[in-house]
Amino acid sequence: MSVNGRPIELVLDARKLLVDVLREDLGLTGTHIGCEQGSCGACTVLVDGRPVRSCIMLGVQAEGCDVTTVEGITPEDGLNPMQQAFKDHHGLQCGFCTPGFLTTLAGVTPDAYPDEESVRELLSGNLCRCTGYEGILDAVLAAWGRDR
């Protein structure tokens, strides 16, 4: 597979979850574990460009795939526009869930979410316990060039 654009070759125990492969074998600890049953979204990564839950995907299932983590969507010299919008709009507090939101957002097209209701629906696959989602919603709408 490739991870954040770099080819990776690993011999894996079949049962090892993709999130543990990323965190333990590759040291990419920006991807977090929140529930291990695919309901909180903290572990979201992009697999072939699509947001998926890496806690309910086996590492071996990613063979041949392009995997992108929060480290992979972060520019070398600072923050990408969505990350900057999160910072500007207080879209995070403890930051544990944040990489999952950012990767989800990196894997969708804004046009598919034309109004606030659909954006909320999109965000509902990621849980945040700190912000009440207000700052996150503000950040997304701002980054997508929309008025709140």
Binding site: G27, G30, E71, L92, G95, L102
Partner: peptide, 21 residues
């Protein structure tokens, strides 16, 4: 004012207990 902790949290650079190795 912008929060000083945000950059590391946004970029995957934070260190939580599970990241201690």
């Amino acid at each position: 004012v912008a929060r000083v902790e945000d950059d590391r949290l946004l970029s995957g650079g934070a260190r939580f207990v599970a990241d201690v190795s």
